[in-house]
């Protein structure tokens, strides 16, 4: 079965990437809300928010990137759902290919599409005054954590795409994920939040990831926070992957 895994995945990846190249709006729309939030928080609320850092765009950007990923993966669920509905998934499954390559092509496409969205957002942030002394190693660390976060959420999207009954269901799962950064250190420091909210905010994955990326961008030592961030990402990835495989086997016994 695995004999053609890489060549089949390459062929199917080429197909999905063509989809993206032909509907660049799926990249653009993903960037609109995060960019609007960034404008809103920097130019409207920003003056009243005290983060203890001089540059609020620098503080804000990591959380904005996570919001972009959380909304971008909805397209992965949508593309998968469309393939299942249209029958092309069945066509691929009835062909002599490595079946797992069908899902992996969607997953890698998600990484590429979200990567493109993030590049656009970082460019806009640079225009708005984002500055970082980060060297290549820190940038690679940021890219690695964002890729891991995207991968974990993409497998969540695969679960949604495989088990959704309607297009709305395939996309709707991402709303709570988009909301998660708001109750974290992404927009404001957690120390002004009331007790229970603060407890939640400080112990949820987004805060650990945001703090790590902020540290990497600022070339500060990341401390043990990076391990907490990585642990969150890897555990989410493992759990989502296992559940996605279960959803797959339920659908294709």
């Amino acid at each position: 079965m695995a004999t053609h895994f890489f060549s089949d995945t390459k062929v199917l990846l080429g197909r999905s990437l063509r989809h993206i190249a032909r509907s660049p709006d799926t990249i653009i729309t993903v960037t609109i809300t995060p960019i609007a939030l960034m404008l809103l928080f920097v130019y409207v609320f920003g003056g009243a928010i005290s983060t203890g850092t001089g540059n609020y765009v620098n503080y804000l950007l990591p959380g904005i990137l996570l919001i972009a990923i959380a909304s971008g993966i909805a397209y992965t669920a949508f593309r998968l759902f469309t393939d299942l509905q249209g029958g092309i998934f069945d066509r691929f499954h009835s062909m002599p290919i490595a079946r797992s390559s069908v899902l992996w092509a969607h997953v890698i496409t998600s990484l590429v599409a979200n990567g493109l969205s993030l590049v656009i957002i970082v460019l806009v942030a640079l225009l708005m005054g984002f500055r970082t002394p980060a060297g290549p190693l820190a940038w690679m660390g940021v890219a690695g954590i964002l890729a891991l976060f995207t991968l974990a959420l993409t497998w969540v999207a695969v679960i949604a795409g495989l088990s959704a009954k309607s297009v709305d269901g395939a996309g709707g799962f991402s709303y709570p994920l988009i909301f998660l950064p708001f109750i974290s250190s992404a927009f404001v420091p957690t120390d002004t939040m009331p007790g229970p909210v603060r407890a939640f905010a400080e112990n949820q994955p987004v805060t650990a990831i945001v703090n790590t990326i902020q540290d990497l961008f600022a070339e500060r030592p990341v401390g043990s926070g990076i391990w907490v961030a990585l642990a969150w990402c890897v555990s989410a990835l493992v759990v989502a992957y296992v559940l996605a495989m279960a959803a797959y086997r339920k659908r294709f016994p």
């Binding site: 062929v11 199917l12 197909r15 989809h19 032909r22 249209g86 029958g87 066509r91 062909m95 290919i97």
Partner: peptide, 23 residues
């Protein structure tokens, strides 16, 4: 299958090339 399992976003030729590659 019951519903034409073709890729709407690709051209007709690209659909056929896709299947030939997968075979």
């Amino acid at each position: 299958g019951q519903f034409a399992a073709v890729d709407e976003i690709l051209t007709g030729r690209e659909n056929l090339v896709l299947v030939a590659r997968l075979r």
